[in-house]
Computed example of a mutant assay.
Amino acid sequence: MPVPTEERVVALLSDLVHGKGFDLEGVTVVSAGKHSAVKIMVDREEGIDLDALPALSRDIAEAFDGVSDFGDAPYTLEVTTPGIDRPLTEDRHWRRARGRSVRIELADEKFDGRVGHLDGQSVTVVTRTKGVLATRTVELSKVIKAVVQVEFSRPKADEMELAGGVVGGRPAPADSDEIVNVETPEEGSDK
């Protein structure tokens, strides 16, 4: 495959990926001699299960095979989700990170907090300083960098409650036997 530009891959795949219910988070194209590599990063609101990526990968490969400007040279196609080290740059990234620990860098400070509700152009962040919990509002336009942090223990229930509760599919807080504010389908519904 002649090395397509990232812009060409985005143009080719945007409608396909969105039509399958995913957000196209990034495209990387690398030429390695006669063998190219194309990495497609996707995400979606409800998360991605292991069966979804192979099916999407097949659809993307078919789209590549259906265009003539990619040629016949071998290439490696990787369809993946963004890693935990992906910066939070879009509103949807902040929404998906609700309840997670994040390191935020502003012009004059860096701090760790737990992502709360996104409200227009700002996000509520739960901080803990010397054992005292507080919330603060951070304007997204002032964030230089924000990255989800790896946590090796379950979050504290009081932090999660201030952050707006547990987002579906995430573990319950460490000092709570029940999940706080989880939205679940009503019994008997087909959701």
Rank of each mutant, 00 (worst) to 15 (best):
E161S: 10
K39N: 05
E187D: 13
P155I: 07
E46L: 11
H35F: 08
S57Q: 06
S57R: 05
L12N: 07
L50Q: 07
D65G: 07
I40N: 06
G120L: 01
V132F: 01
V167P: 07
M1C: 09
N181L: 13
R92D: 02
A157S: 13
V115S: 04
D49V: 15
F64A: 06
L106E: 02
R136N: 01
E178W: 09
G33V: 00
R154K: 15
K39F: 01
K142M: 04
V182N: 08
V126L: 03
A134P: 02
H93C: 01
Q121H: 09
S176E: 12
F111W: 07
P82R: 04
K39W: 04
P155G: 14
G165H: 12
A73R: 11
T76A: 12
A11W: 04
T135Q: 11
T89I: 02
L13S: 08
T28Q: 14
D177P: 11
K156E: 15
K39E: 15
M41R: 13
L50V: 15
E105C: 00
I179D: 11
K130D: 15
P87G: 01
D190A: 13
T184A: 14
K20P: 02
D72N: 05
E78M: 06
A32Q: 10
I104V: 15
H35Q: 06
E109R: 15
R96I: 00
R136L: 08
E25A: 12
F152L: 14
D190K: 13
T129K: 14
V123A: 04
V138S: 03
D177R: 15
G33A: 01
D23A: 04
V102M: 05
R58L: 06
T184R: 14
G165V: 10
T184M: 14
D85I: 06
H117G: 00
G66T: 01
A52D: 13
H93S: 01
A107W: 02
G188D: 08
P82E: 06
A55R: 15
V167D: 07
A134N: 13
P2Y: 08
T127M: 07
R95F: 03
V167K: 15
A146Q: 02
S122M: 03
M160E: 12
G21R: 05
T28H: 05
E186D: 13
L118D: 07
K156Y: 12
A32Y: 00
R86M: 04
L13W: 09
E45R: 10
V166Q: 11
D108W: 00
V180D: 13
E62T: 07
F111N: 04
V17R: 05
G188M: 10
E186T: 11
V67E: 15
T184G: 07
E151I: 09
A11T: 11
R128A: 10
H18Q: 11
D23V: 04
L118W: 04
R92W: 00
L56S: 05
E183F: 10
D43S: 12
A146S: 03
T80H: 06
S14K: 12
A134H: 02
A97G: 05
R170L: 15
A146G: 00
G169S: 14
L50W: 09
V143C: 05
G131W: 08
R58K: 13
V67M: 05
V79A: 02
A32K: 11
K145M: 03
G19C: 03
Q149L: 08
F152I: 11
T81C: 05
A55L: 12
E90L: 06
D119V: 07
E161G: 04
V126K: 08
E105L: 03
V27I: 14
T80W: 09
